[in-house]
Simulated scan of single mutants.
Amino acid sequence: PLNRARMADYLGFAGIVDNAYDAGQISSTEQPVEVASIVTSIALHAGAFIEDVMTQYAQPRPWILLQEGGGNTYVSSAMPQKRNPGLLNDTRQSASTAVTLAMGPVIQAHNITPGMGDAKDVRQNGEMIESAVTVLAEWNEVLGALVINPDRALEELNSDWTASQEIADVLMRKYKLPFRAGHHFASEVVDYAKANNIKPSDFPYAEAQKIYAVSAGEMGLPPGDLPMSEVEFRETLDPIAIIRNRATVGGPQPAEMTRMLDAADKALGEQDAWIAARREHIDTALGRLDADFDKLLASGG
């Protein structure tokens, strides 16, 4: 009988699929489908990122753009003032192509007799994998071409009441107010600000005190002053201070971002080491196979 363990060793596999029927008829069809799920995941993540950046091109004053020229952008054929993000368009198209190709093995493996070769086509599966490699390469180009304007980004945050929930969070976390009460107060502040075209940085503290007094009564809280000082109230609405004061695991605060980037670098290093070790193992195994074949041929056997 075929020595499956020896064959796996000669070909550089880490081991065998224990059940022989599974190895010959099932796994070889499932593996392209599993790879397709990885390709799909890569493409979906890339597509979501691209679309997130693409929304900037609908802004009259964006804060994240591609560096112009160099194949990244091109001038619109109709509107002289417009710069089309060609690299983003190309990467999105590549991601869509990858998703399309990844659907192939799933459809081919559906409703067939076990062992049929529909989903095992090496050329087609190779094209699917290459499509994911293309997406990653183009995505890397996008990341390298991004130009971020921090001042403009902060201006955008300060132009609206994006940080208003922090008021409710601080009132609950520091002053033990029910979140619904703090949320109601923050909502009333936003309503007043929008009705009077007031930005967060310009909101009058005296008006906040008045709104708090009314909101507290509406929520059934004991009469009292807004527990935040004016300095704290303004800091609570400052996006930079919000990020700086965050203590959530996985949050945007600089220390946590550094930790996550370091962890990602470590994981990538470990994966690179694993790939190098597997490649060396496969090369060694195939070299041993060739050497043993050469011995067999030399012996005339």
Results as ranks from 00 to 15, higher is better:
Pro1Gly: 14
Pro1His: 15
Leu2Phe: 14
Gly12Glu: 11
Asp22Ala: 07
Ala23Asn: 03
Ala23Gln: 01
Gly24Ser: 08
Val33Phe: 05
Ser37Tyr: 13
Val39Lys: 04
Ile42Trp: 03
Ala43Asp: 00
Leu44Glu: 08
Gly47Asp: 08
Ile50Thr: 03
Gln56Pro: 00
Ala58Trp: 06
Gln59Glu: 04
Gln59Pro: 00
Arg61Asn: 08
Gln67Glu: 13
Gly71Thr: 01
Gly71Tyr: 08
Thr73Phe: 05
Thr73Pro: 04
Ser76Ala: 02
Ser76Gln: 11
Gln81Pro: 00
Leu87Phe: 09
Leu87Arg: 03
Asn89Ala: 05
Asn89Ser: 08
Arg92Met: 09
Gln93Thr: 09
Thr97Ser: 11
Val99Pro: 01
Gly104Lys: 06
Gly104Asn: 14
Gly104Asp: 15
Val106Lys: 08
Ala109Arg: 02
Gly115Leu: 10
Gly115Arg: 10
Gly117Asn: 15
Val122Ser: 09
Gln124Leu: 03
Gln124Glu: 11
Glu130Asn: 13
Val133Arg: 06
Thr134Cys: 15
Thr134His: 15
Thr134Phe: 01
Leu136Ser: 02
Trp139Met: 05
Asn140Gln: 06
Asn140Thr: 08
Asn140Gly: 03
Asp151Trp: 02
Leu157Glu: 11
Trp161Ala: 01
Thr162Phe: 15
Glu166Asp: 04
Ala168Leu: 13
Lys176Gly: 00
Lys176Gln: 06
Phe179Leu: 08
Phe185Leu: 12
Phe185Trp: 07
Ala186Pro: 05
Ala186Tyr: 07
Ala186Ser: 14
Asp191Ala: 13
Asn197Leu: 13
Asn197Pro: 00
Ile198Gln: 13
Phe203Ala: 13
Pro204Gln: 14
Tyr212Asp: 01
Ala216Trp: 08
Met219Thr: 02
Leu221Ser: 09
Glu232Ile: 00
Pro239Thr: 05
Thr248Arg: 10
Pro254Thr: 10
Met257Leu: 09
Arg259Trp: 01
Arg259Met: 02
Asp262Val: 02
Ala263Tyr: 09
Ala263Cys: 01
Asp265Gln: 14
Lys266Trp: 09
Leu268His: 07
Gly269Val: 08
Gly269Lys: 02
Asp272Gly: 09
Ala277Gly: 00
Glu280Phe: 02
His281Glu: 09
Ala291Val: 06
Leu296Gln: 12
Ser299Glu: 10
